[in-house]
Nucleic acid binder design. Structure first.
Length: 267
DNA sequence: ATGGGGATGTTCT
DNA sequence: GAACATCCCCATC
């Protein structure tokens, strides 16, 4: 009968704007760091109208490991009901390979109502509740029961709204202000910061109105990618050590740094 | 800086 | 009843 921790829901966001500072002022339309990059041409751009740089189904239709690597550098955009756009560059992912992968929810071919999204078409979201209180967001890849877990983002836009969504009102103590690097450096943190919950489960990242992926860093300027062991799967036997977690070396936005794995990384 | 423990409830045995 | 792809706070170095 514990007291329900007060949470900011999407509905509350809509009814009462969180902070006036976030309301776009007439002066600065949509000034943000990413605008400097401009739209990139790519075979993956398939959405004719609406979002010009949106990554389509073709992007997601590749095996989990290449998809997990391809996610790095792309920009996840979340549009809230009030029109606010939250943006973050993907800097850390994990690949889950399917039935043979002892760390995957689809291990042994298990298919349940919960993990159905893992078996749906590439680009389908699999959002599940972890430890009773948090969410993790995966994107289905090519391959039955295979997917990519998003573990960390570099916040690019809407940081004050993210801070509001992330700061939990704990009884008694007024929680301190979160640093920028604390907003999205973990799979459940990024879900909090972008207001991603179970309602996103089984939605299509290639088609959804409230969230999409945009092409981010162009190939040549990408940082080195570290391949490290995945986090929080110590039960998975030989699969525990496999280098299926990928992140940008040197990025301050990553959730867990693996110095040993970085020794084996091409600079 | 690092580590231990509590929160919290759905899913699965 | 146990496990869980986590996070946060507090204690201790």
């Amino acid at each position: 009968m514990g007291q329900k921790k007060q949470r900011l829901t999407e509905a509350e966001l809509q009814q009462s704007p969180l902070d006036t500072a976030q309301t776009p002022s007439p002066k600065d339309p949509h000034l943000r760091p990413t605008s400097a990059l401009g739209p990139q041409r790519s075979i993956y751009f398939s959405s004719p109208q609406g979002h010009p740089a949106r990554l389509g189904t073709e992007f997601f239709d590749q095996p989990a490991v290449p998809l997990a690597r391809a996610f790095l550098g792309q920009v996840l955009v979340r549009r809230l009901p009030d029109g606010t756009e939250l943006r973050g560059r993907v800097v850390e992912t994990e690949a889950y390979l399917g039935p043979e992968d002892e760390a995957a929810h689809s291990r042994g071919g298990r298919q349940t109502p919960r993990n159905r999204g893992m078996f749906m078409k590439p680009g389908t979201l699999y959002v599940y509740i972890i430890y009773g209180m948090y969410f993790c967001m995966n994107v289905s890849s090519q391959g039955d029961g295979a997917c990519v877990l998003l573990r960390a983002l570099e916040p690019l836009g809407g940081l004050e709204t993210m801070r509001q969504l992330r700061s939990n009102l704990r009884k008694g103590t007024l929680s301190r202000t979160l640093k920028d690097r604390e907003l999205c450096n973990g799979p459940s943190k990024l879900c909090q910061a972008l207001a991603i919950d179970k309602s996103f489960d089984q939605r299509d990242l290639a088609q959804d109105e409230a969230m999409w992926l945009e092409c981010g860093l162009p190939g040549p300027s990408r940082p080195a990618v570290v391949a490290a062991a995945r986090v929080g799967i110590s039960y998975a036997g030989e699969w525990t050590q496999k280098p299926l977690r990928f992140y940008f070396q040197g990025s301050p936005w990553v959730s867990v740094v693996d110095r040993a794995a970085e020794q084996d990384t091409q600079a």
